[in-house]
Amino acid sequence: MRWHKAVGRYYDFVKDIIEADKSSNYEMSCLSLPHGTCQGNIIRNVLALRRLGVPQKLLFSLLTSNFHVVSGKERFEDSLEKIVAMGFDPANSKFVKALFSRRIHCLQSSFEAFIGLGFSGDEFVTMVKHCPQCIGLSAESVKKKIEFLVKEMNWSLKAVVSNPAVFGYNLEKRTVPRCNVIKALMTKGLLGSELPPLSPVLVVTGEAFLNKYVIKHDDDKDLVAALMAISPEIVLHRSSYTFL
């Protein structure tokens, strides 16, 4: 009888969520009711998420397909505290994904690494939203790339935040060679006095980079040869340009 009361209470709670979100099209048929003491944990945890402003549709999705992720207590509270501290927006689906990531401790480590290098919490969240691969990067790797991009190349932290994919690029095989091409062109006065934006240098494909910074100087074969030698990522052929 006690179990039936628990199920009834849980059903009423789920019904309340459905009623609160009139636009919901989810079906109750996929709902699996939890047993035992996790019942109270689920209700308490979902209520906590509702108070933070997590949309009804996201809560209902958890209850109908992933209720196990809100059935804990200590782990849930610890994860919630960390994600809130990082600045994730509760109204965004990324909040829920981050909260229940199996790599929550890895996420925390990455957060601390980026903060220690001068990024704000909001900037870290922005980068993770656009490039989840930022999670799991070692502090040493991030620091090495930041020192090169910001201190040596003089791009701003803001530019890096806008292009977080750069953290996933191989420093020795892609980033440094391309930047050396840019340095060579600037030394010769072929790019003006201002450093080009980060995106068209590092984020674009090898073909786009070659077209923009090498092929345009095709009238100077010696220069092209020198640039090709600087960046082995691209190889010059007699009739066309291809890439390794």
Rank of each mutant, 00 (worst) to 15 (best):
C38Y: 05
C38M: 06
C38H: 00
C38I: 09
C38L: 06
C38D: 06
Q39H: 05
Q39K: 11
Q39G: 08
G40M: 00
G40A: 02
N41C: 05
I42S: 09
I42P: 02
I42F: 06
I42H: 02
I43M: 06
I43S: 03
R44Y: 09
R44A: 05
N45P: 12
N45C: 10
N45K: 02
N45F: 06
N45I: 01
V46Y: 00
V46S: 00
L47P: 01
L47H: 08
L47M: 01
L47D: 03
L47N: 15
A48S: 07
A48Q: 10
A48H: 05
A48I: 10
A48T: 13
A48C: 11
L49H: 07
R50K: 11
R51G: 06
R51F: 02
L52E: 03
L52F: 05
L52I: 04
L52C: 04
L52A: 04
G53A: 11
G53V: 02
G53L: 02
G53F: 08
V54L: 07
V54T: 12
V54F: 03
V54E: 02
V54I: 09
V54C: 04
P55W: 04
P55S: 07
P55G: 00
P55I: 11
P55E: 14
Q56N: 07
Q56Y: 15
Q56K: 09
Q56D: 14
Q56R: 15
Q56P: 05
K57G: 06
K57Y: 15
K57F: 14
K57A: 06
K57D: 15
K57M: 09
L58F: 10
L58W: 07
L58E: 14
L59G: 00
L59P: 08
L59N: 04
L59Y: 03
L59V: 10
L59A: 01
F60M: 08
F60S: 06
F60V: 08
F60H: 06
S61F: 11
S61A: 15
S61L: 14
S61W: 11
L62Y: 01
L62S: 06
L62D: 05
L62H: 01
L62F: 06
L63N: 02
L63K: 00
L63G: 02
L63F: 04
L63T: 00
T64Y: 11
T64I: 13
T64C: 12
T64W: 07
S65P: 04
S65H: 11
S65D: 10
S65R: 01
S65Q: 12
N66P: 00
N66L: 03
N66M: 05
N66H: 13
N66I: 04
F67Y: 11
H68N: 15
H68S: 12
H68I: 14
H68R: 14
V69L: 13
V69E: 10
V69I: 13
V70T: 12
V70Y: 02
S71Y: 03
S71H: 12
S71F: 11
S71A: 13
S71D: 09
G72Q: 03
G72P: 10
K73R: 15
K73H: 13
K73D: 09
E74L: 12
E74Q: 12
E74F: 14
E74V: 07
R75H: 15
R75N: 14
R75T: 15
R75P: 05
F76A: 02
F76I: 08
F76P: 03
F76K: 10
F76V: 09
F76G: 03
